[in-house]
Amino acid sequence: MQLPVMPPVAPMLARPAREIPDGCSYEPKWDGFRAVVFRDGEDVEIGSRGRRSLTRYFPDLVAAFRHDLPSRCVLDGEIVVEGASGGLDFFALQQRVHPAASRVATLAERSPARFVAFDMLALGETDHTPDPFHRRRCVLERALLGARAPIHLTPLTTDPAVAARWFTAFEGAGLDGLIAKDPDLPYLPNRRAMAKVKHVRTADCVLAGYRVHKSGPGLIGSLLLGLHDDAGAWAETTGWTDQRGGLVPVGVAAAFPMARRRELFDELRPLVTGIEDHPWSWVAEVVAGRAGSGRGGTRWDAARDLSFVPLRPDRVLEVRYDYMEGFRFRHPAQFARWRPDREPASCGYAQLDRPRPADLADVLAGRIR
């Protein structure tokens, strides 16, 4: 492979912004795997944000790139998977990263990926990274004129009012917010040179346990969060009918300073209980069944290690989160404060703000304005 921009490339990043800035080009913020795609004839390489190869996990995309991308190019974009509901399915995307080649082939058919392109780093013999973004976007649009699904060009607007509507409307398809780019900005690898505006919501959750920090005992790694199944939907979906109305695991709160991890360890010690007395005693059955089946998992399959320190579910905490996917927070939540004024039984799904559903196909086709 001989291209004007060679792998690996650390993609340009974004810094958080509270509001949509003026005077920018605006795109949806896709929540998938960031990917820089290199094509030189039949040679295709897909690099991750961490500059590791994703190529072997997405044979369906490799075939599409060979068929529809220019013969020599370098593109920046996002790999996503569409779920059964018509929106993004990040869990299904995570499953695509599997160590077994046979499983990779099966998942490529069962959960085909899409690539959403949003920048052009090189085309033919030309390195476009020094060019301003508005020029790179024009090159990208021309290069993808003949491209078909699963290759897509991300929507773009320069109208802040349209961007504000996108911020609300696109969330129903599982998108994460907005990216704002200076139209005169060159491509700056590994620099937080763009702005991202994300959805932020709060929820009151039950503290159900914790995981020990990877550094060892005496430190909290993450707090395990639960919500009560007030509508019984989780019990019906999972088949755990005896858990109707029970406490559903919805994710974790993490990212504590080291000193706070030590404080939490001492603070929560009186709440430690046995798993047999815990609402999640069924976890032991899941672990036993998993061990007996010998079933493996993906590289990012958090369910591979279900061990945790169970706590009496007596305390409530408020967390900040961005998006609820199914019954769980898509990303780790952030601890906001303890809520001694709330009863654990009152912490259910009814409190959550749900976006209006939208189809990913409508977003990609520009039918949502």
Rank of each mutant, 00 (worst) to 15 (best):
A169Q: 13
V363P: 06
F90D: 01
A17H: 09
G177A: 06
D305P: 04
G366D: 07
H278R: 10
I368E: 01
P332E: 05
L93N: 07
L69V: 11
A113C: 09
G32N: 05
V316I: 11
G172A: 06
Y187F: 09
R304Q: 15
S102A: 15
W280S: 08
K198V: 15
A303R: 15
S48W: 00
Q334G: 08
A358D: 01
Q243E: 15
K196D: 05
E141V: 14
M1V: 13
V250H: 00
Y323E: 06
A255I: 00
R56C: 01
P8E: 03
R369V: 10
S48A: 02
G294T: 03
A303P: 08
G348W: 05
A233N: 13
A84I: 13
P310Q: 12
A254Y: 07
S307W: 03
L145R: 15
A350W: 10
F329E: 04
G47Q: 14
D43A: 14
A235D: 04
R304I: 12
L188Y: 02
V80F: 02
F335G: 01
A105G: 01
M1P: 14
A84Q: 15
K181R: 15
R328L: 05
K29R: 12
P70L: 08
R315V: 13
L225K: 04
R96S: 05
F329R: 08
A149I: 10
V309M: 03
E343F: 06
A169D: 12
A10C: 05
A164D: 09
F91M: 12
A254T: 15
